[in-house]
Amino acid sequence: MPVYKPASASGPAENVPVPVKPALADEFSKAGLEAFATYWYATLSYGFETGDMSPMEAVTDPSCTTCSKVKAGITPWHQEGRWTIGGQMTVNSVQSNFVETPDGTFQAIASVSQGQLDYVRADKSVAQSLAKTPPISDIIVAKFIEGKWLALTVEHLAGK
């Protein structure tokens, strides 16, 4: 059984466990959508930690622009010997009214924080260090398709 080792100043994370979607997150219910939103942030967290966005992409529509922004930033960084330290997502709260909107989607509101995130170069120098974020209010817009939730948009409530 490979042992998970978080990233440190001396090297990248090893054997990062792939987030496991709980059965509840596939349920068409308020609790199901909330579990799905929590799972979504676990896939985002995994993406920041490994550069591998495929678990997130498996449950996210390609039209999610903030999701592509994360991928464009994170995935290239995790190549050529570079890595990141930290950046784990914490879901402070997630709630859905489970009301269908006129376009057939459902929404959940989450408060999330991201831990300190360091971008480290292959020579172990730190390119950028971003402090832990304050709580951020996000909206998760999702659709229930073929027995599963699909995230259409995940972004901050306060836009540009």
Binding site: V70, A127, T133, E155
Partner: peptide, 10 residues
């Protein structure tokens, strides 16, 4: 290089 605070701005 950024974090969810920036990436997540819609």
């Amino acid at each position: 290089t950024s974090n969810w605070g920036d990436f997540g701005i819609g």
